[in-house]
Nucleic acid binder design. Sequence first.
DNA 1: CTGCCATTTTACCGGC
DNA 2: GCCGGTAAAATGGCAG
Lengths: 85, 85, 85, 85
Amino acid sequence: MTPYGGLSAEHLEQFITRIERLEEEKKDISDSIKDVFAEAKSSGFDVKTMHEVIKLRKMAASDLEEKEYLLYTYKKALGMVSEEQ
Amino acid sequence: MTPYGGLSAEHLEQFITRIERLEEEKKDISDSIKDVFAEAKSSGFDVKTMHEVIKLRKMAASDLEEKEYLLYTYKKALGMVSEEQ
Amino acid sequence: MTPYGGLSAEHLEQFITRIERLEEEKKDISDSIKDVFAEAKSSGFDVKTMHEVIKLRKMAASDLEEKEYLLYTYKKALGMVSEEQ
Amino acid sequence: MTPYGGLSAEHLEQFITRIERLEEEKKDISDSIKDVFAEAKSSGFDVKTMHEVIKLRKMAASDLEEKEYLLYTYKKALGMVSEEQ
DNA sequence: CTGCCATTTTACCGGC
DNA sequence: GCCGGTAAAATGGCAG
């Protein structure tokens, strides 16, 4: 059944409103992040490098797992591991 | 003066940590938004159209006209508009 | 039957290699497309609008109407259409 | 100067046409890739795993560099590396 | 048919 | 103020 007739317009309005509210909150946080970068910059740190560091920290955590997983995947693809492994 | 000697390492760590914390919060909100869209979808609404509507609501009237006019110009140049349009 | 014993490893390697080769070609073409857009941009055209136009050309007439109608319905539900529209 | 007057319409047409042509080629390649996967599948290989393998092969190359780079980046952020490094 | 993943597109932000 | 690259969002496609 298509959402027309009954309360659909209010329904839609509610969803839209909730989303727009959340997007505002999200924007506030983005602004806070910007502020922190600005503060760091005025303390003498290089913003671009900080971005790199953060990005790499995010990646670093999962990298090791992935590397081990790569080996396992190869073996599996070639039928070199038993099922329960 | 370069930020070296003294408290720089801790300093940097603090900035990075604050930012990472904020980015987590931001991600939580993004997830919430996704949830709302999913809920709307399972209520029968079309997610893509909802995105369009939200975008339009955000856009100021003058911007809209500008955008529409530019698109029209391009379509005309490519023969994509009929006479009565 | 699992693909193991005999030539499976070479077999897999061949498939993977063929795919990776094709993906490279695909990437080259993507790059070419980017180049053309860049060229158009430096000739003074608006890239975003070009994307829109291309999308519209791809879309069949009936799909377009459908899409337009759906959007109109949502806007109406949200009070975003004036009477004369 | 805006691109209107003179040969702009033809100009635009040419750009659009070139792009559409390239997109067709790209689609052909995508189809070829799909074919290879289908062929592999009917030879008994698991498509999902193949995707994983390909993805990981792409990542494997750059992982090591990244890890070393992370350390370097930290040092740099703290002013612990000299300029020419 | 649904959910997931890849790609593409858009927006943002810092640098010049 | 513009350009470039970087990160997020959105769309589309594929497997299950």
